[in-house]
Design a protein around this nucleic acid. Structure first.
Lengths: 189, 189
DNA sequence: AATATTATAACGACCGGTCTATTATTACAA
DNA sequence: TTGTAATAATAGACCGGTCGTTATAATATT
């Protein structure tokens, strides 16, 4: 860390936010230029391979940001049920207002899985990271390897799907209902 | 029905498929022209308001196609657990190969929820239709109004999220794991 | 003859990407 | 410290191509 390259970091941050909200094809380089105030020359200086390269770095940035956010909230509750509910309810709080920051990487994944293998792989890696975070919490709480792994997939799917539903309906309700059903899922076998 | 407008129907069918796989911004009108063999003049004759109008019709087309597909497979099993598992496992069978036909409307929803209100509403309506289909099955099976409604949201989210994970990982496994967890969720209260 | 449909050419706007010039910053020699 | 050459970074005009859309003409259909 501690490599203080402000310009590059701003580009990554702005690109991450825009891609999250409008997807890959919905965001032009000119949008990123304009929003960040950084000229095209600098963008291509730091990302000589262009848009796809920037997008992959942005995906990895979002991956890490979300991973540490999940870790942080899961660590605050010993009970995995309460922890996961807090995690999902936290997501639901963003809705109804206007801020809303999109599916973290689901939009890009859905758009580009069939047309950009590097992007697909970056998105896959993000999903795997988040799943690992869930797995760790479940293992700590005494769930079996098998059940932890299975549940982490289901939780990941429910979270992604829940955000999508909440975005589409402009309403945090779907995520709240999902949070309520967590206890059913987490019955130890 | 039975209004035999072949040209228009072909446009809707082709547009639906392309939007499913590559999203709204990832598909140009030229792609639709080329894939369908129908000239641009005809497209604007049938959809004078252009791309967005065509997309909304395509979304509604996909909505109805998916709704009747869900209804069909749910009707084949009396037990709602078996019925939903069959539904989800059927989805999982599309993966691993190359065909794969994308998130039905989730991609467009995620891309455009913030930039096209008409598209957002069309997507919302599709999600509501699918949820209603789940609700009906659960009500028939003796679940309470409240639980049926809650579960239908969770199922919808799991299916959408599961397809997204299966697309991204090129693997039907996520959907299969989700299908296996259905019994936990459907415990009657 | 009137209308519906097909067929393309062309439009301006914007796309991702390239190019060249200029300005900061760094590294090293005196 | 200062002068200077090398390199990094900024700046934006510009490129060919493609975007969604429009316009106009030709052709079928009624």
């Amino acid at each position: 860390m501690t490599h203080k390259n402000k310009t590059k970091d701003i580009l990554i941050e702005v690109a991450s936010q825009l891609f999250r909200i409008r997807g890959y094809d919905g965001v032009g380089l000119n949008d990123i230029i304009e929003e960040s105030g950084i000229p095209k020359g600098s963008l291509y200086h730091y990302f000589p391979k262009g848009k796809e390269e920037l997008a992959i770095v942005a995906i990895n940035h979002t991956k890490e940001a979300v991973t540490s956010e999940i870790q942080k909230i899961l660590a605050r509750f010993e009970d995995p049920i309460k922890a996961l509910q807090a995690h999902i309810l936290q997501l639901s709080e963003h809705f109804g207002e206007l801020d809303i920051s999109g599916l973290p990487i689901g939009t890009i994944a859905a758009e580009k899985y069939s047309t950009s293998e590097p992007i697909r792989i970056a998105c896959q890696s993000a999903f795997e990271d988040w799943q690992s975070t869930y797995v760790n919490k479940l293992l700590e709480s005494g769930y079996s390897e098998q059940q932890s792994k299975d549940l982490s997939i289901v939780i990941n799917a429910m979270v992604e799907g829940g955000i999508l539903l909440s975005l589409t309906t402009k309403n945090g309700k779907p995520l709240q209902v999902i949070a309520e059903q967590i206890p059913l899922l987490l019955i130890k076998k």
